[in-house]
């Protein structure tokens, strides 16, 4: 089973890369871009047939490794 995870910076946490991307988009002719936040995306192949069990395992993985909860949030999709 494949589980997808998106990790993003929490609101209020400075994202210098996102800011640089936004400024570049603005200067490339997209003046109406008001904000960009950069995140990470993971595709996780897990040997588990039960989706609820698989997602609960992935939740544990996110809390222990994939996200740093001091500055990041995660979403399992």
């Amino acid at each position: 089973m494949k589980i997808k995870v998106i990790v993003t910076l929490k609101n209020g946490v400075l994202d210098p890369q996102g800011k640089a991307i936004q400024q570049t988009l603005n200067s490339m002719g997209f003046p109406n871009v008001n904000g960009v936040r950069q995140g990470k995306y993971f595709d996780i192949e897990i040997d588990e047939k039960d989706e609820i069990k698989a997602k609960s395992k992935v939740d544990e993985m996110c809390k222990k490794l994939l996200a740093n909860l001091v500055i990041e949030d995660f979403k399992i999709i």
Partner: peptide
């Protein structure tokens, strides 16, 4: 990252 110290080291302000 191990949690032995609080907080986190982020990318430098000026990238």
């Amino acid at each position: 990252e191990t949690g032995l110290l609080p907080g986190v080291l982020q990318q430098n302000r000026n990238i």
